[in-house]
Lab assay of single mutants.
Amino acid sequence: EADPRLIESLSQMLSMGFSDEGGWLTRLLQTKNYDIGAALDTIQY
């Protein structure tokens, strides 16, 4: 079963217009401990 923190973070990022095609966003959020800010910083640079 998916981590509730992942579901919450992923749904927030999907609502911002990101896609999780191929699961890349799920993996990114997992490596950033479900921190949306850290994930966005990684995507920006």
Rank of each mutant, 00 (worst) to 15 (best):
E1I: 14
E1P: 14
E1T: 14
A2K: 13
A2S: 12
A2V: 13
A2F: 12
A2M: 14
A2D: 14
D3V: 06
D3L: 06
P4F: 11
P4V: 10
P4C: 08
P4K: 12
R5T: 05
R5A: 08
R5E: 08
L6R: 04
L6H: 06
I7T: 13
I7C: 10
E8I: 12
E8V: 12
S9Q: 04
S9P: 09
S9F: 09
L10K: 03
S11A: 13
S11G: 12
S11L: 13
S11Y: 10
S11I: 10
S11R: 14
M13A: 03
M13V: 03
S15N: 13
M16W: 09
M16E: 04
M16D: 03
G17L: 04
G17D: 02
G17T: 02
F18N: 00
F18L: 07
F18C: 06
F18G: 01
F18S: 00
S19A: 10
D20S: 02
E21H: 11
E21N: 12
E21C: 14
E21K: 10
G22Y: 09
G22M: 08
G22E: 09
G22R: 06
G23T: 03
G23M: 07
G23F: 07
W24I: 05
W24P: 00
W24N: 05
W24H: 05
W24M: 05
L25S: 00
L25D: 00
L25A: 02
L25R: 00
T26G: 07
T26N: 03
R27V: 08
R27P: 02
R27H: 10
R27Y: 07
L28S: 01
L28M: 05
L28F: 03
L28T: 02
L29I: 05
L29P: 01
L29G: 00
Q30V: 15
Q30M: 14
T31A: 15
T31G: 10
K32F: 10
K32T: 14
K32S: 11
N33I: 06
N33Y: 07
Y34L: 05
D35F: 04
D35Y: 03
D35W: 04
D35H: 06
I36G: 01
I36Y: 04
I36W: 07
I36S: 03
I36E: 02
G37Q: 15
G37V: 14
A38P: 03
A38I: 08
A38Q: 09
A39S: 06
A39V: 14
L40N: 02
L40T: 04
D41P: 02
D41Y: 10
I43T: 02
Q44R: 15
Q44H: 15
Q44K: 14
Y45G: 15
Y45T: 15
Y45L: 15
Y45N: 15
